[in-house]
Amino acid sequence: MAQQYVDSKVQEDKVVLFIKASCPYCVLAQNVLTKYTFKQDSLQIHDIAGHSEMKAIQDYLQKKTGARTVPRVFIGTECVGGGSDVEQLDKSGMLKDKLSAIGAI
């Protein structure tokens, strides 16, 4: 169920965040991404905090990405990491390139 949930959200042409709303790194990732103008439905944010399968979702994210912490940020099918990672990609200019490469912006 958790694997199906995650895999159904992650798509080649979308930026997907798995977050918990109260998490400061989740807020950081969202704030960095709001600098960009996304095409409709290209940015999807899924708050797993109240999800009945939250623990299983995080366990699957661990298996899929190497970390179970949130946020887990996917640009297309690539997990680029969490909040600090997104911030670093933005500062280096690589974030815009990655977003453009999948057609999200």
Rank of each mutant, 00 (worst) to 15 (best):
Q44D: 06
D85T: 08
L95F: 10
Q40W: 03
A101E: 14
V86K: 00
F38W: 13
T65A: 06
V86D: 03
V73L: 01
V80Y: 04
L99N: 11
V16F: 06
D47N: 03
A56D: 15
C23S: 13
L33M: 09
T69K: 02
L28A: 07
C26A: 13
Q40V: 09
G103A: 05
A104I: 00
Q4T: 13
R68E: 05
E87C: 06
G76P: 05
A104D: 08
V10Y: 10
D90S: 03
C23L: 05
Q44M: 02
M54D: 10
A104W: 12
Q11H: 04
Y60V: 11
P24C: 12
E12S: 13
C23K: 02
S100P: 01
Q3K: 15
V27E: 10
P24M: 08
D7V: 02
S92C: 04
K98F: 02
K63A: 14
S42V: 04
V6M: 10
F74T: 02
I45S: 03
D97G: 07
V27I: 15
D59S: 15
L99F: 12
S100Q: 15
M94R: 14
Q44C: 13
Y25S: 00
G81E: 12
E53C: 02
S52L: 07
K35I: 00
V32R: 11
I102K: 04
M94H: 13
Q30Y: 06
S92T: 14
K9F: 09
C26R: 05
N31W: 03
K63N: 12
S8Q: 13
K55C: 03
A49W: 01
L89I: 02
I75P: 03
T65G: 08
G83L: 08
T34Y: 11
D41C: 01
T69P: 10
A101Y: 05
I102M: 12
T34V: 09
V73F: 00
Q44Y: 01
D97M: 08
G66K: 01
G66M: 07
I48W: 00
S100V: 12
D7A: 03
K98T: 08
V86F: 04
